[in-house]
Simulated scan of single mutants.
Amino acid sequence: MSHLNYNHLYYFWMVKRKGSVVKAADALCLTPQTVTGQIRALEGRLNGELFTRVGRNLEATELGQLVFRYADKMFNLSYELMDILNYQQDESVLFEVGIADALSKTLSSRILLAGFPDDGSLHLACYEATHELLMSRLREHKLDMILSDCAGGSLQYPEILSKKLGECGIGFFAAGEVPGEFPACLEQVPLLIPGKRTSMGQQLHRWFDDNGLNVRILGEFDDSAMMKAFGFFRQGIFVAPSIYKQDIFDQNISLIGETHEVRQEYHVMFAERMIQHPALKRLLATDFSDLFAGKDPGIAGL
């Protein structure tokens, strides 16, 4: 075997990563028939089948698993090469970041600012979505990094690295007075909380049970900004990181109570190939201890 057709190998790699010919064809802007034909040609070159059909799903054969391991290294290295070349040549370095919509926008922006150089050479592009959608985009090389409230997804993929930046407790806020002592007073007013798919939403439900609270939940939100907007219009008690309570007070909102038993975590996740991105390197080297302790000087200027 003197050489391989790398286009054929790339199409196989995409099918294996996407899980189906149809999804790979859509990503490649080709017809499924074309992709299938290219894989058949590669199988002919390798003298063996790369996939076997199990029900409606395609599963890689032993040969397919072997070929994929090498192809995965090859194409990830090619992405890394292009990234490094772009960092060296572009006057403005593009930094595409995904932010889990459950996170506080204020705190997320403070974290991202740590990656900004003083010379204005960084061009930031932010995308908001659920943790699951962001992980998918990250694995498809459509994002350089994601900022999320959990790192569980990164454990499933060896090519994805993660680092916990910090965590903080949460406060319960309302546009008006709430009678009674905290936390029992939470039973008196409808609550606006993060959805059950989020880490904080799951923690809150456990915390209510642990404290014997029979609360009435008016709404669950994947987007923290939407949750806060409902709270500002006097629709119920909402939650937010307690370290930014002064910023919330300035908007005529009262703190009902706070707890450190429910904590919002901040993790960055990125492909191993992105470790050389200048903005990511600065962010990973930053100590966020003061920020998550509520001592960051930037908070006073909000």
Rank of each mutant, 00 (worst) to 15 (best):
Q65N: 14
Q65E: 13
V67M: 09
V67F: 03
V67C: 05
V67R: 01
R69V: 08
Y70P: 05
Y70F: 14
D72Q: 11
D72V: 01
M74N: 09
M74A: 10
N76F: 04
L77A: 11
S78A: 12
S78E: 14
S78K: 13
Y79Q: 13
Y79F: 15
E80C: 10
E80Q: 15
E80L: 08
L81S: 10
D83E: 13
I84H: 12
N86M: 14
Y87H: 14
Q88S: 12
Q88W: 10
Q89G: 09
Q89T: 14
D90M: 15
S92Y: 15
S92C: 12
L94M: 14
F95W: 11
F95N: 00
E96T: 13
E96N: 14
V97F: 06
V97I: 14
V97P: 00
G98T: 06
I99W: 04
A100D: 15
D101N: 09
D101T: 05
A102M: 11
A102R: 07
A102L: 10
L103F: 01
L103Q: 02
K105C: 03
K105E: 11
T106Q: 11
T106L: 14
L107F: 00
L107Y: 00
S108Q: 07
S108G: 09
S108D: 04
S108T: 08
S108V: 06
S109G: 09
S109F: 09
R110K: 13
R110V: 06
I111L: 09
I111K: 01
I111N: 02
L113Q: 15
A114W: 01
A114I: 01
A114K: 03
G115H: 07
F116W: 12
D119I: 02
G120P: 06
G120Q: 07
G120L: 05
S121F: 07
L122R: 09
L122G: 03
L124D: 05
L124C: 09
A125R: 15
A125K: 15
A125V: 10
C126G: 05
C126E: 14
Y127M: 12
E128Y: 12
E128H: 13
A129R: 05
T130D: 06
T130A: 07
H131N: 13
H131I: 11
H131S: 11
L133S: 13
L133M: 14
M135F: 07
L138V: 03
R139N: 03
E140R: 15
E140D: 09
H141T: 02
K142T: 03
M145H: 09
L147Q: 02
L147D: 00
A151T: 03
G152H: 12
G152T: 09
G152V: 11
G153K: 00
S154W: 00
Q156C: 05
Q156R: 12
E159M: 11
E159C: 07
I160M: 01
I160A: 00
L161A: 12
S162E: 08
K163H: 11
K163Y: 08
L165Y: 00
G166C: 05
G166H: 02
E167I: 01
C168F: 07
G169M: 06
G169E: 04
I170E: 02
I170N: 02
G171P: 00
F172L: 10
F173V: 04
F173T: 02
F173N: 03
F173G: 02
A175L: 10
P179E: 12
P179T: 06
G180D: 08
G180L: 07
E181D: 11
E181V: 05
F182W: 06
P183E: 05
A184Q: 12
C185K: 08
C185T: 02
L186T: 00
L186G: 01
L186W: 01
L186K: 02
